[in-house]
Every structure is written in C-alpha cells, then in structure tokens.
C-alpha cells in the first residue's frame, strides 16, 4: 500500500442543531496538513452545511460557514455533494456557496471544488476510500 491514503469525510447532518458539522470541519483542517488524498462528501442533511447566506446572529453561535471557502487554500479540491440529497430538499447548486481552489498544475487557474454526484457515483467514491470518517 502506498503512503498516501484516501480519506473521505462524510457529512450527513445539518449545521448548528448539533456540533458535528463544526467539529468535522476542524478535523478536515488539521488533516489537511498530513498530505493525504482528502475528499469531503455532503449528503442527506449534510448538504445544508454548504448553503450560502448563513446568518447566526439570532442564535448567537459562531457562523463557521466562511471556513468552507478557505478549504481551497488547504489544497482540498474534492468536495462531493449528492444530487439526490439536494433534490429531496428542494435545493440546487445555486443555493450553495461557490467553492474554488487554484490548480498549480494549470497555471493556478481557479477551479470549482464542488462536484455534484449521484448516489451511485458517491457509492463508488465511498467504496474506493481507505479511511471514512463519519460525522
């Protein structure tokens, strides 16, 4: 086995109702320093973590959603959002933040980090992962 493992962070819960989304993000940020092959999956209520225009003033919690837009700076390029989960919730990609990374192999071109994938495609991605951290 090579030294680099495929890490997949599976996010299935909405933000703020529980702490899982925030603390998952903290693992992702620390994990980024380990030079592994990292991907994030957002499915079921996890897709709500990526909505734009989150405003937490009224609940007096820290709005951690801007952190997602920093993931590109941590060289996290693979953010999978499940198509079926979006559709079931009446959401489209336009309801989500626009997340990007700069591709150093392509003259630092700005590219989209989010890929909308079907459940079937996500199943294959999960299957090919070595370490799956579920939140």
């Amino acid at each position: 086995m090579s030294d680099v493992k495929k890490f997949l962070y599976v996010n299935r819960k909405a933000p703020y109702g529980t702490i899982y989304a925030l603390e998952s993000l903290e693992v992702v940020l620390i994990g980024a320093a380990f030079e592994q092959d990292v991907a994030l999956a957002f499915l079921d209520d996890g897709v709500y973590q990526l909505t734009k225009d989150q405003n937490t003033d009224g609940i007096e919690m820290k709005n951690f959603s801007p952190t997602y837009s920093a993931l590109g700076d941590y060289d996290i390029r693979k953010i999978y959002v499940e198509k079926e989960s979006l559709e079931e919730r009446g959401l489209t990609i336009d309801d989500l933040q626009h997340l990007t990374y700069e591709d150093e192999d392509d003259d630092w071109a700005e590219k989209d980090s989010i890929q909308v994938v079907t459940a079937k495609e996500l199943a294959e991605i999960m299957d090919q992962s070595d370490v799956i951290l579920s939140f």
């Binding site: 890490f7 903290e26 693992v27 620390i30 994990g31 380990f34 592994q36 070595d130 951290l133």
Partner: peptide, 8 residues
C-alpha cells in the same frame, strides 16, 4: 486532532 489522522 493530528492523533486521529495519524491513526487513520
């Protein structure tokens, strides 16, 4: 948290 990643 690095201890978790290391375990992975």
């Amino acid at each position: 948290l690095g201890q978790l990643i290391e375990a992975g």
